[in-house]
Amino acid sequence: MKLALKIWRQNNASSPGKMVDYTVDNIEPDMSFLEMLDILNDELIVKGEDTVAFDHDCREGICGMCSLFINGEAHGPDRLVTTCQLHMRKFKDGDTIYIEPFRAKAFPVIKDLVVDRSSFDRIQQSGGFISVNTSGNTIDANTIPIPKHDADKAFDAATCIGCGACVATCKNSSAMLFVSAKVSQFSLLPQGKVEAKERVLNMVNQMDAEGFGNCTNTGACEVECPKGISLENIARMNREYLKSSLI
């Protein structure tokens, strides 16, 4: 396949960026999208040009490191996959592909397609954990009976890899799907219920402080989420936030 690429290039956080045109040839349908970018970068190195910076790590769809807004969608046109799992068979010979960084005020661009998603880390640090007593008398969590329904819901929420696709795709740059998944994965389980009130209040406060937009329930985040995190989590977070604020 021969493809025309329009890629956002930006030297650093403070410099202005622009879309730059590239062409790549001999792209195999079985290649992943990141492998296609690897080939582009190899060609740029040969030409002595600056390579395109992009995030990646495990390339197995589980680490949440890769990002990219491809042809107007977070992680590209495929569903329930991260960019590293997106294959070039999803495109046709002669296609023009727009490749942009995840855009949000809370996700500033570091270079080219790499954005700073540490705002998610700070939200996690504000309450996305349980306090564990490590005195030696800790009870094994597996000894506490948990209804399967709750365990399944908690596990579904816990599959969120924190990639930020929800923020990138939301027209308001809202982080509520991410935050609600992190709130839910703990609050559904007995170990997490103890600190549920503080958790939801602090995580929402930190989310607001980071400058994310507000959720308007378009549902775009759920569609684009590579892990299929449900909007049900946002309803649960809203409920818990209201309850924790009033009681």
Binding site: N71, Y98, R103, K105, N172, T218, V223
Partner: peptide, 29 residues
């Protein structure tokens, strides 16, 4: 809220396919 939400993305996308994942009515309240 609309003003604040717009401010949450100071630089927009060159290509944004909103119709791929949300209805017109939800995106244009």
């Amino acid at each position: 809220l609309d003003f604040k939400n717009r401010a949450s993305r100071p630089i927009g996308y060159a290509k944004y396919n909103g119709a791929a994942n949300a209805s017109w009515s939800s995106r244009n309240m």
